[in-house]
């Protein structure tokens, strides 16, 4: 991506930013994150359809933040993550410059996060057909069937926490599972403990997850944990009206409407 390389070089040269986060060619036909701090490294930047890792996971990482102002090559999911992170006061215009990559693989420059937000809001978060089908299949199952499905699916989880590490929204310096007073979720990988962990993860991401699938892509065992957050996303849409990350405004799960509808409270 010539435009991106040129822009990265310019930003580093003029010291507008200290580091540009983008993708480079990896091993095994994979791409991976590249941190450009010297202009000559910018030539390694690439962008193509394989670049799916959500780079926003790096912008809250201490080692990267400590470098100074960052620029980030951001696809639509990355931009959504950034807006959500900004709304949670994790990034702002003074420490982050977004180099947007449109769904048509065009570089767009944004002066500030408000412009990013405007851009992002042109697109709806859509759940792809394959996952939609899976969700439908699960909905149609009976309760014991669903229980069996999830216990079986989550049984292999060995709690490497790659899902958490890859998720831009999981930036807490101390996760609930790292607390031991009380120990909410067992440290060891157990049938119920695994379910508890993924339930907790899904609920903490409700109204925050922007459906980038980073957790699923990171899972070394390909457990479909993204179905949980997708389900939450769809439900949030159904109950509380569409969901788009926004710089200002209430967070879905930390607000309420006096007329929120439900049908199960006696």
């Amino acid at each position: 991506m010539v435009d991106l390389i040129k822009k990265a070089k310019e930003l580093i040269e003029t010291s507008a930013v200290k580091v540009v986060i983008g993708y480079e060619e990896g091993t095994g036909n994979k791409t991976r994150a590249l941190f450009v701090e010297k202009t000559e490294d910018a030539d390694r930047l690439i962008f193509d359809s394989r670049c799916v890792q959500n780079l926003a996971a790096y912008i809250t990482k201490k080692e990267i933040k400590d470098k100074g102002k960052m620029a980030i090559a951001a696809t639509l999911p990355v931009m959504r993550s950034i807006i959500q992170l900004a709304s949670e006061f994790q990034v702002n215009d003074s420490n982050l410059l977004v180099l947007g990559i449109t769904p048509e693989s065009k570089l767009v420059e944004f002066a500030n996060l408000v412009e990013v937000e405007t851009f992002v809001h042109q697109y709806q978060i859509e759940i792809d057909a394959r996952n939609k089908e899976m969700l439908d299949k699960l909905e149609k199952m009976t309760q014991p069937e669903r229980w069996k499905f999830w216990i079986d699916e989550l049984a292999p989880c060995f709690k490497c926490y790659a899902c958490r590490a890859a998720c831009p929204m999981c930036y807490c310096s101390r996760c609930t599972v790292d607390f031991n007073q009380p120990q909410w979720i067992p440290v060891a990988s157990t049938e119920l403990g695994n379910l508890e962990w993924h339930l907790m993860r899904a609920i903490h991401l409700t109204g925050r997850c922007i459906d980038c699938d980073a957790c699923y892509n990171a899972c070394p065992l390909s457990i479909p944990i993204n179905l949980l957050t997708k389900k939450m996303l769809l439900d949030a849409k159904e109950h509380f009206g569409g969901y788009q990350p926004a710089l200002k405004g209430d967070h879905l799960m930390s607000t309420y409407k006096p007329d929120d509808k439900e049908n199960f409270i006696q």
């Binding site: 699960l138 909905e139 199952m141 309760q143 014991p144 069937e145 669903r146 229980w147 069996k148 499905f149 999830w150 216990i151 379910l195 339930l199 899904a202 609920i203 409700t206 109204g207 949980l228 389900k231 939450m232 439900d235 949030a236 109950h239 509380f240 799960m253 607000t255 309420y256 409407k257 929120d260 439900e262 199960f264 409270i265």
Partner: peptide, 16 residues
């Protein structure tokens, strides 16, 4: 109430 709406749905989805 808002949290229960979502949590109950998640429980239901995971077969609880």
């Amino acid at each position: 109430r808002r949290r229960w709406i979502m949590f109950r749905s998640l429980c239901n989805f995971t077969g609880i």
